[in-house]
Amino acid sequence: MKRLDRRIIMDRFFKYLVIVISLIALMPLFYIITSILVHGGSTVLKAGISFLYEPPPSPLSTNVGGIGPSLLGTILLMTITIIIGLPLAFFTAVLAVEYPNSIIAKFVGILTRSFIEIPTILIGVLVYTIMVLPMGRFSAIAGAIALALVSLPYMYTHIENALASIPWIYREAAYGLGLTKPKALFHIFMGIARRGIVAGILIGLAKASGETAPLLFTIGGSRHSYFQGLDKPIDAIPLLIYEFAQTPYNIYHEVAWGAALILLLIYLGVFATLRLLVKKVEL
């Protein structure tokens, strides 16, 4: 009887231990979100709707201003990143799924996935050397290319999975109709795998909106003027947060919190859409 008691006590203890540790592990998420809501919320309330389109304040200003250029920059960077990254991810995924026996397809598949292992800061540094140095200035396009390289493996993986998991019966049906590979792909396979493909795009967007390190040495953080051209500096919300948080000015910290709220909303928006589309998300 005594032995049984010990087993049951151990079982209880284990259960509470697991629950307590789990709650502790999840707590930071709520803490972070609450902090951003409280601090960011107060900034945004103070600045009003103009927070979304005004440029940021000067360090000693009392007026919060806004993050207009950075928000616009983030939206533009998200767009260009997808324009550059999606075709690469999509067509290499098609190559891998439709020509699984080709050595090139296999090799490029491994290569694309391995981009995930390159630290994002290193991607920023490399794009700096390849693009910023020769061009002589920071640019939106350099940032977008860096972000595209960061998002590439995520988009590729999701699109490849989506295409590869099209049930065999539909492949046979498509080819049984006499459709060639491109016709079957564009008219049938893409339609059947559309959720997975859109999920891939959304993950690309999530990365493009939230990554900071690839932008450190590529876009130049031009946060007082709005879009000037693809070959000109631009800003992004994550970079603004990163740089403003490290300044000694209170007003900049306030702006950083407000920007964090906007970034959080963008991220949660993308995530929620993703969740509605697919069951499993790998970020």
Binding site: I32, S35, S209, G210, I241, H253, A260, V281, L283
Partner: peptide, 19 residues
């Protein structure tokens, strides 16, 4: 999953100022 994908700069901001 939300935690896994949360922009790292948000962890940084919260970490530096609050945590």
């Amino acid at each position: 999953e939300v935690m896994a994908g949360l922009p790292t700069v948000l962890y940084g901001l919260w970490g530096a100022f609050i945590f």
